[in-house]
């Protein structure tokens, strides 16, 4: 019984921790809702995307490519390219899922977005965090995303110019703060500088979200090479 309560606590903590960033998620969702009307995507289709795909930037691209004769293959490939980073994100969650069953992993992994993933890893550096925390955060982001997109579709965007309220910068600010909480000390200097340089260059040269993969892998390879040099 005790274990069950612990899981509920973790889900609640994860949900609460994601509330601040969820406000931005909802505001951006409302922008997608408005875009969806222009592309003749019904609110039911939009809700179905939210629940079954649950990946913001790929949904923006999907809705943008939406037309009367749907290019199914092209859309699927675009989604694959944009969401490819989830392969790395999933891999980085290994410590959080240590010792859990396969079924548990299958149930928990659907609700993984950039926001609750980063929040969970940052929290795990401070103390013991389970996959319940990740899942609770996912529920929070999913709720905000559905509220935002559907009300945008039904009622119009929350705010006419999100830039004036720095809602675009809210994501940058929260991810910056979370990045700092992942800082392990001097060993991170070289990998992080490498990641920044690779990400900035590849963001200019490659489409979609490939820069996250290039920077993430490139930076994480650095300590392996520098260790070899020491020997």
């Amino acid at each position: 019984m005790l274990k069950k309560f612990e899981i509920q606590d973790q889900i609640r903590d994860g949900f609460t921790a994601n509330l601040p960033v969820a406000a931005s998620v909802a505001a951006y969702g409302s922008v997608l809702g408005v875009l969806a009307i222009q592309k003749n995507v019904s609110w039911i289709e939009l809700l179905l995307m939210n629940i079954s795909i649950f990946a913001g930037s790929s949904q923006f691209v999907m809705v943008d490519m939406w037309q009367s004769k749907l290019p199914v293959i092209e859309i699927t490939l675009a989604v694959l390219a944009i969401n490819f980073r989830y392969l790395l994100i999933g891999a980085s969650l290994r410590p959080i899922f240590r010792g859990t069953s396969l079924g548990h992993k299958f149930r928990m992994m659907h609700l993984v977005a950039d926001e609750n993933w980063a929040m969970t890893l940052a929290a795990s550096r401070k103390g013991n965090v389970s996959s319940g925390y990740l899942f609770g955060g996912g529920l929070c982001i999913l709720s905000a995303w559905c509220i935002g997109t559907i009300s945008g579709h039904r009622l119009g965007a929350f705010v006419q110019n999100p830039e004036a309220f720095a809602l675009d910068f809210a994501f940058i600010a929260v991810f910056t703060a979370l990045t700092i909480s992942l800082w392990r000390g001097k060993t991170d200097i070289l990998p992080w500088i490498t990641a920044v340089i690779l990400a900035i260059i590849s963001e200019k040269m490659l489409p979609g979200k490939w820069y996250i993969i290039v920077g993430g892998i490139g930076g994480a390879l650095i300590p392996i090479f520098s260790k070899k040099k020491e020997k």
């Binding site: 890893l121 892998i217 930076g219």
Partner: peptide, 14 residues
């Protein structure tokens, strides 16, 4: 090393 480098790569261009 991966979590930190993914996250900083995600945010740096922005």
């Amino acid at each position: 090393t991966l979590p930190g480098t993914i996250l900083i790569s995600l945010v740096a261009p922005g």
